[in-house]
Amino acid sequence: MNQLALLVAATLSAGTPLALAGLGLLLNERAGVLNLGSEGIMLVAAVAGFGTALLTGNEWAAFAAGALAGAALSAVFGWLVIWLNTNQYATGLAISLFGSGFSAFVGIDLVGKQLVETPAPSVPLLRDLPFLGEALFKQHPMVYLVMTLAGAAAWFLYRTRAGLVLRAVGESPASAHALGYPVRRIRLAAVLAGGALCGVAGAYLSVVYTPLWVEGMVAGRGWIALALTVFATWRPARLLLGAYLFGGVTMLQLFLQAQGVQVAPQFMTMLPYVATVVVLVLISSNPLWIRLNMPASLGKPFFPGA
């Protein structure tokens, strides 16, 4: 029983950076912009966050720095893609390339530095509950924050006017433009918010999850976050679940090993991706479902009738 509780706890913690970045990309994509630069953005944010934590000793300052760095890099992306109408895939990949190089370069002196260890946080009273205390209430605040954030994102997208406008921009930028909405600015705002969230995810990795900086340490999590948005059919709550599923599969596989059970890890790791394709096929095969789920203008540039 205790084992299971620990597995749940580890899964929540492993899913958190994925969920953070995934939520950011979800906002991006809801506005119709696909940002393949997430891996590079997370890396730059990870190094910025780690550097800040080293200087200030404050992890929230580090998250802020990560968010700032993420937003700055995605501002470049947004400017190119939204105003100069460059191709989104090529630009995103270029950002990724630049981000990995740049983070490695500015991080050279940060390698091997260590942060002051902060005590493991937990929720008073609740942490003493049997099973649940171990499983749910001995986590970093960011773990709870991301859950709240997913709720907030859902509320924003479906219950607020601004969210409606954002979705309209992603659905049909031309109609949104005709209605007088500043499509490009809205898209830029979504890109900045998305970059900032990817940035927090990067900083969480380098400051909390594995408190160290080494180049390339994001190790593909930016790409997984991209897959997650599809898996979740662009719904924040599903994205959160998806993040825990992706994180959980990795943890489960390591857990089983620690219990002496050997599995072919490749197939277990493959499962979420296969599931993503299946989900995509299911929603796409029905014209109504796809209209309900996928931002129709995803990846397509918008020219405001010049």
Partner: peptide, 22 residues
């Protein structure tokens, strides 16, 4: 616990966690 990499800090963390939990 095998992580299938020489160098993947987050995964090493996860593996360590699994061992400790075990």
């Amino acid at each position: 616990v095998w992580v299938g990499a020489w160098f993947d800090p987050p995964k090493e963390t996860e593996a360590a966690k699994s061992l400790i939990n075990g």
